[in-house]
Design a protein around this nucleic acid. Structure first.
Lengths: 220, 220, 220, 220
DNA sequence: GATGAATGAGGGTTCATTCAT
DNA sequence: AATGAATGAACCCTCATTCAT
């Protein structure tokens, strides 16, 4: 299921030594800074190396080409994001669906917002062709985690886990991104987040009635 | 409210004559094709002109520079999209909120899906600088239309129109985009679309109960 | 001796009809204007045609290419200049050398100064390769006139006419151009002009002594 | 007093290392060659780089743009020329005016003639925008040197130094340029040079008489 | 291992010139 | 004759990538 990156995009060496790690981190941070301050168009290898305080040559020791750098940056970010989602999912195992949804919203929203500039920088960097694969991999991994989580909910009844997951995931991730792109005020952001949670809750409650034989709300 | 494009991005001549229109259309179409087949990176003026069957020089007769071309393409698309949303909003004036939401989902989903490649091509192109302004303009226009529509609903009660609008707009547009990016199968797409509508309906129903004094579901 | 222009630089048609003459004049004037206001770099056929109020196509009816236009402009200017020099020479025939020199300075200085911008514009346009030939032709023609004039002076004695001519011509033309390029104030300009005349006079006087058997000034 | 170049025209790196110096020299030399053989019109970055035996990229490492290259070339030449004039002025300090004039002619004439092609190439290149400033700077510097020199002459009497300087400088520089452009034979060149010196001498002698109370030549 | 000067393909853009209308 | 849209060669410049030091 995991497609894995094209060979050309793989990082050259896994930074095991601490010096390497520091260098790579500096490069990543520099990339974000440049992306942020000057945009995708100005993201040149020279500029990144300069800001990272290393030479271009050194950069090429860690990344076979520019695309690989951007790729790795996104990979790293998405890996961390997936990890956080998995953590949340593990934590919420066995909780009611509504709480799961709320926790997922919390996690995702926080992740996207806490370093908004980084998020924005990365959105900008995704022009690169093959990041599609990256996104698919992330989706697959996140979906696996959330699907498993939902399946463990006591109020799952006989719902179709994949479909429920698809619905909640699409709504939550999609809404958060849209919110992000709107550049909302803090107040609006809080409201929207609350309403999104309410919406998921309402949806789950209605479905619950269906599945528990209760009278559907629409007929009440 | 509308910021308007930077002068540098304005198209050079408005294609009034039929020949001009044909040419401009060919250029737009070619841009989409290139974007689609080769990605943003390969979107060069030469390539576009070639595929459009005109010379670079001709292209520059209509667009002062490459950015302006991409800008105009997005402008055109977003203008049409906003128009469709406005039409839907006009049509649904006075209908119940749930129906409005459903109609909005229909319109937006259809617009994004009926020429999926175009949508995909444009998503790829929006990364370019200053298209932000374009998106903001679109959002402003669309929000105006939907807010007005919602305000006309008989079951609006004492809801806060801007907040309701923000919620539904963010959820609907966000979810549709997320769905789109997942490249769902037809079946999954249909399911998600249905569930998104249900979700909105459920949310509106619950809120309705609140506003009509009914006992909230969560306490039942 | 006259090399004549390369065929490619010849104007296409001699403007005999009055309409043609008006058009050509407009084009010339437009060329000067553009040269003046925007410099050589901005001297494009489109721009010239536009300012002249004709279409590029029409321009190409009168000049086979851009170089020919610039060539013709310079040719016209130099022709007029040579004409004025010839007129002065004719007028001064038989006068003393010193008066001849003064008259030549007057004529040349006035010609260069009375429409200084035009002079400047033309200096700018001379980048064009083959204008060398043009300049040579002018020099030949002017030298012929001045040499003849000098030869007619009563105080020529046994001087070498070509050498005297070379000396005076080089000094006068050279100094005037240098003065022009310095962008002198009116006062400085007047002073320099006066001193240039004095210098020529002094030179001629000394030579006269030599040639008349008088004791050379330097030994007195 | 010195205006200094626009920032855009400054050279990118000062060639301190020997390799850099060689490269820059090669580029300068190539520029002159192209200018000479093909004229200003054909002075393209590619052509220069090619003839210099380096890549365009390398050229741009040393000069931020084409104009800067031409600018630097002229700057270098004019700097050397000014230096030579200053040296002559220093050397002639305290000498009689006539000898000063002769020395100035020698220096200037030699400088313009010894590498005639270079001179010619540069005359062709000066048309470019903003080299005006360069010329002004040169003039200012040279005038400062010559004015100071003239002021130190024993036979300055109560002459106006600036005016004397303006006169001699304009006549000498102007005449030399004109001579140069005429492409004189060696014999004619020698003659003209001699006569120019004589002319200056005659002018200074006459003035001297005025200032020393002697009877003016014209009345003798 | 690290450096950064050198490379040169390729990008965006201009503009002299043509030719169908 | 006049027009001006179309052409495309050629220009200036950038920047990912290499490799001698």
């Amino acid at each position: 299921m995991t497609r894995g990156p094209k060979p050309a995009l793989k990082a050259r060496k896994t930074p095991v030594q601490s010096r390497s790690r520091v260098t790579v981190d500096a490069i990543f941070e520099a990339t974000i800074q440049v992306l942020l301050r000057e945009g995708m168009r100005a993201l040149t290898t020279t500029r990144v190396a300069e800001r990272a305080g290393v030479s271009v040559g050194t950069m090429y020791q860690y990344f076979p080409n520019k695309q690989a750098l951007v790729y790795a940056l996104n990979e790293r970010y998405l890996d961390a994001l997936a990890g956080r989602i998995e953590a949340t999912c593990a934590e919420m195992r066995g909780a009611p669906l509504a709480e799961m949804a709320e926790a997922l919203i919390d996690t995702y929203w926080t992740a996207k917002t806490e370093r908004a500039e980084v998020t924005r920088a990365l959105y900008r960097s995704v022009v690169e062709l093959d990041n599609d694969a990256l996104l698919q991999d992330f989706a697959t991994r996140a979906d696996a985690a959330t699907t498993a989580m939902f399946a463990s909910a006591p109020d799952m009844a006989d719902r179709d886990a994949p479909t429920l997951n698809l619905t909640l995931a699409a709504v939550i991730y999609g809404t958060v991104r849209n919110a992000f792109e709107r550049g909302l005020s803090d107040k609006d952001a809080r409201r929207l987040r609350r309403n999104l949670a309410d919406m998921c809750q309402a949806y789950l409650a209605v479905k619950a009635e269906h599945h528990t034989g209760a009278i559907a709300w629409s007929t009440s």
